[in-house]
Design a binder for these strands. Sequence first.
DNA 1: CGGGACTTTGAGGTAGATCAAAAAGTGTGG
DNA 2: CCACACTTTTTGATCTACCTCAAAGTCCCG
Lengths: 244, 244
Amino acid sequence: MVEARDGLALWLDRLLLRSTLGAPEQAAIMALPGLLETARPNRDFVRLGERVDRACLIVSGLAGRFSQTSDGQRQTTALHIPGDMANLHSLVLPQSASALRSLGDAVLYRVPHQEIRRLTATFPALAEAFWRDCTVDAAVLSQWALINGRLSARVRVAHLVAELCCRFAIGGCVDGMSLPWALTQIQLAGATGLTAVHVNRMLRQLREDGALEIRDKKLRVIGWERLCAVAHFNPRYLHLHKAL
Amino acid sequence: MVEARDGLALWLDRLLLRSTLGAPEQAAIMALPGLLETARPNRDFVRLGERVDRACLIVSGLAGRFSQTSDGQRQTTALHIPGDMANLHSLVLPQSASALRSLGDAVLYRVPHQEIRRLTATFPALAEAFWRDCTVDAAVLSQWALINGRLSARVRVAHLVAELCCRFAIGGCVDGMSLPWALTQIQLAGATGLTAVHVNRMLRQLREDGALEIRDKKLRVIGWERLCAVAHFNPRYLHLHKAL
DNA sequence: CGGGACTTTGAGGTAGATCAAAAAGTGTGG
DNA sequence: CCACACTTTTTGATCTACCTCAAAGTCCCG
């Protein structure tokens, strides 16, 4: 059974990677009230343009953030894994500029803005930690813009896979490691700005290169070094450690 | 003669578009100490990976933010106009994830983090206003990711031009309007993820379509409606007005 | 067992890259 | 004011990475 506490604990860990928080701040995070909710698979749980009054913590499963043109074309602008407060920025900009949707089965914990504001008002260190995490989010998007704007399809797919490896297994990615993998090639295409057909071919190449293998909803990293080399991957932009 | 006060006033106007600030907060902004500096044209004034202890306000001219691959390829992730505090986010993430460079002649006002922190500590409303403006920045980048990831070269160029029109002439863009235009086609290519050659062809098309004209470092909007239509442009994402 | 979503492979088309070179503009020093 | 070097703009010709369309194969769930 999934519980809100699990999600909050993951989120707190994430915050502590980048910010120093005292015991009262940590306790306040863990005590945040909210609503646990099972998202219907592949459905928007925050719609474009909607005025939002609760932030969504991903407790389990995956979620995507999407920008959309007037004629309905979508581009993924972020992938969120458990422990991500997917739209924390809605606290300061409640008019949602992008949609959030579950990718497969997902469980959310919806925390009212007003509860988060209570925390930022009491603990300035939390306000800063929140702002910092939003900034990391933007840094990741910058990296996506770079990779998707300048590099080949093969690099894009490899880079996205490498990023997710690092975010799931915070710190150490190694050869032979295996991760649960719920993303379809269609979803991968949405995030890399490619077509699903071409993603398929690129994944085959990466398999033939001895970099990785996806089977049975599992990703197996065959050659982490090779994958990083193909992807031009350097995890610094993820800010998974406190700055020196 | 350009003065720091001009830049600070522009920035304050920008903040007031999106946040409500009292007289003391406004006075505190206008009193921010810093160093006025003439940037050498087309030079990085914040380098990649550098540890930053001052934020850069663009007082005059243009600046670009760039992400960069290990082998030196660059992608523009933001264009900054006078009144933009280009790297306000460095306050919470001082390890610079992107480079900042002047595009042509530019004048900067460098404000020490420590002075800005004095403000956020005293006035929580300013901390929130700053966070909000960084969030808008990220929203603009999302839009770029969408446009550059999914739409044709013609749309990309048109969209960028339309965005800059709106940001320069906050609120009203009209037919026949003319703006100072300092960007080269090479710089346009850097922001749209195209080559300069192709940008040139797209600009010619837009001219032939009766949408715009660039001559003598001036941009003339011939048909604003037409430009917006070609660009799929809807200025909402710029958050140039307070949310309803 | 049947239907829907996803994956895989093939064949052919195209938007935009690349390469090349001329023309126009811009700044510098004599 | 002109001569120069350098950058930017413009145009042409060719090439290719990725898209599009199509169809078969696979997986999964009711």
